[in-house]
């Protein structure tokens, strides 16, 4: 069994702002990459078309390489997402997302990967994005448990619905991990089945 710590109580890292509203999953990961056999290279393709169109895109800028807290606008991740969009962001290095609001499926898929998505008021969002642009080296700290985002000495009230937040805090967001908790009960159940043990 894996000993990975699944609890996602606090996440701290450098920030990266992606401004604009209604950024859909096609923009996060263009559809042609859905044919790939692994998610491995998804990170490279995160925002690929947007990055090609705009050399100044934050994902292209050296200052933001290694950042892990993504700060976005309203309705981020809308569209009919499968897992590829949060996979791409995660594999690029994103560990937490702060935004105005999120597409529902994207939000759910992110949680399944252990990526918290917290919402903050528009004014705070703009302040956060500007502040990160001014000083990309500064650590942004996302407290999932307390629902707070901290930058410098400022503490911003953030929010995330109870259900998924508890899953992240308790470390039960990963369905594999939850199922593995049953331990020997899995084999015990199998051993009661005549077709498993042999007729």
């Amino acid at each position: 069994m894996s000993t990975t710590d699944y609890k996602r109580k606090q996440i701290a890292g450098r920030g990266i702002p992606v401004t604009g509203n209604d950024i859909d999953t096609d923009r996060i990961i263009p559809a042609r990459f859905l044919k790939e056999v692994t998610f491995e290279s998804m990170g490279q393709h995160a925002f690929e078309d947007a990055r090609k169109a705009n050399p100044e895109h934050p994902f292209n800028q050296p200052a933001y390489q290694g950042a892990s807290v993504l700060v976005v606008g309203q309705n981020f991740g809308c569209g009919s997402s499968r897992e590829h969009a949060p996979q791409a962001l995660m594999r690029w290095g994103i560990r937490a997302i702060v935004g105005g609001s999120f597409g529902e499926i994207f939000f759910g898929n992110s949680v399944m990967l252990g990526i918290p998505c917290l919402t903050v008021p528009q004014a705070d969002l703009e302040w956060l994005q500007k502040q990160i642009e001014r000083n990309p080296k500064e650590l942004v700290s996302v407290d999932v448990e307390k629902q707070e985002v901290r930058l410098g000495d400022r503490v911003i009230k953030a929010s995330m619905p109870d259900g998924p937040r508890n899953q992240l805090v308790q470390g039960t967001w990963d369905s594999t991990a939850v199922l593995l908790e049953a331990g020997d009960k899995i084999e015990a159940t199998a051993k009661k089945l005549p077709y498993v043990v042999g007729f």
Binding site: V37, T38, F39, E83, T172, V178, L179, A182, K185, I186, T189, A190, K192, L193, Y195, V196
Partner: peptide
Amino acid sequence: EAHTVRTLLSGQTQLLIGLHLIHEVTTPQ
């Protein structure tokens, strides 16, 4: 019932799968 491992906190069943079939398109990831 025969395949129920336990009831999860979510109320769902942890169901044992007796036979798992796989093909090339939905498995690489």
